[in-house]
Design a binder for these strands. Structure first.
Length: 336
DNA sequence: ACGTATGATTTAGT
DNA sequence: ACTAAATCATACGT
């Protein structure tokens, strides 16, 4: 390596005369030609030196003094290697990269090939707790996730390839050099480890940006607010029925919530949300809900009447009196 | 296109 | 843990 460089330098110094000749040359055409000449010479020199280097290397390897030189280098190394020994840094698994890996695995980006769907669904359930259909909504999401996944993997492969290529190159270089200077396998190992560390730090950037992309995608597609669907009419009816028949205390117990959820085909937390929204909105503007309240009050009354008078025929309940029904409110008595 | 309705989330208090 | 209240972001009716 060193002899190569020195020869390069010495070769270039030979150019000195050409480079600085005729500083005041008025002819630009000739100048250009000079530059062309110089370039050509430089190219020739590099070629020449490479060949020459090869020859020199060979000569050095076959030199009769080479074994002596080698042993001298070994001795020198033995004296200095102790100081290097101390600088052996263990590489503990980087917590940062562990975190990213875990997340990518959880999101189904780096996991098994077709597990993406279920993983995404699980993530969705964990995020919002809304298992409402979603197969249509998630198809778009899954497509995008697959896209990210593909990019991630191809990039990862590229990195891996570059890494192994570079590692191979360095290893070959070191092995070749080990003919002229002492290099222990352990040192090569160490070098490889260093290279891998460098590359893994690059990989981390890839992982980080992938994670970011997934997060954005998730917030864009899986955030339940963005995919809000109104409950179906029947579910709303069931909920309203309960609400208006428990107006004095519209706080369903856990069991009641569970039952309502079952009846409506929604989750318990959705029932909770509904009641939370309903309570605050009802309270905020009772007048606006009067009509609805009357409707459900009558409905439940009719139902009750029907239930009790099921045996007795010819029971036709009067149509709702939409006029003078008292404004519903939180009364101590739940029944209206 | 726009205003209202509505389900979900966030914040803060208990 | 549960709720009220405010807020968000979409759905829906006009």
């Amino acid at each position: 390596m060193d002899d190569h460089q020195t020869r390069m330098l010495s070769g270039l110094t030979g150019l000195g005369g050409l480079g600085q000749g005729d500083p005041n040359d008025p002819d630009p055409v000739r100048k250009q030609q000079d530059i062309g000449d110089i370039l050509q010479q430089i190219m020739a020199i590099t070629d020449e030196s490479l060949d020459e280097a090869q020859a020199r290397k060979h000569a050095l390897n076959c030199h009769r003094m080479k074994p002596a030189l080698f042993s001298v280098l070994c001795e020198i190394k033995e004296k200095t290697v102790l100081s290097i020994r101390g600088v052996q840094e263990e590489d503990p698994p980087d917590p940062q990269i562990m975190r990213l890996d875990n997340m990518l695995l959880a999101e189904g980006v780096s996991g098994p090939e077709k597990g993406g769907g279920s993983a995404a669904a699980a993530a969705a359930a964990a995020a919002g707790g809304s298992p409402n259909d979603g197969s249509v909504e998630h198809s778009d999401y899954r497509a995008k996730l697959a896209q990210i996944r593909q990019i991630y993997h191809s990039e990862l492969e590229k990195y891996e390839q570059a890494c192994s290529e570079f590692t191979n190159h360095v290893m070959n270089l070191l092995r070749e050099q080990s003919r002229t200077r002492p290099i222990s396998p352990k040192e090569i190992e160490r070098m490889v480890a260093i290279i891998h560390r460098k590359f893994s730090s690059i990989q981390m950037q890839l992982k980080q940006s992938t994670c970011e992309a997934v997060m954005i995608l998730r917030s864009r597609f899986l955030d339940a607010r963005r995919k809000r669907r109104n409950f179906n009419k029947q579910a709303t009816e069931v909920l309203n029925e309960y609400f208006y028949s428990h107006l004095s205390n519209p706080y369903p117990s856990e069991e009641a919530k569970e039952e309502l959820a079952k009846k409506c085909g929604i989750t318990v937390s959705q029932v909770s949300n509904w009641f939370g929204n309903k309570r605050i909105r009802y309270k905020k503007n009772i007048g606006k809900f009067q009509e609805e309240a009357n409707l459900y009050a009558v409905k439940t009354a009719v139902d009750a009447a029907n239930a009790s008078a099921q045996a007795s025929q010819a029971n036709s309940p009067a149509t709702p009196n939409s006029g003078g029904y008292p404004a519903p409110c939180y009364t101590p008595d739940g029944r209206l």
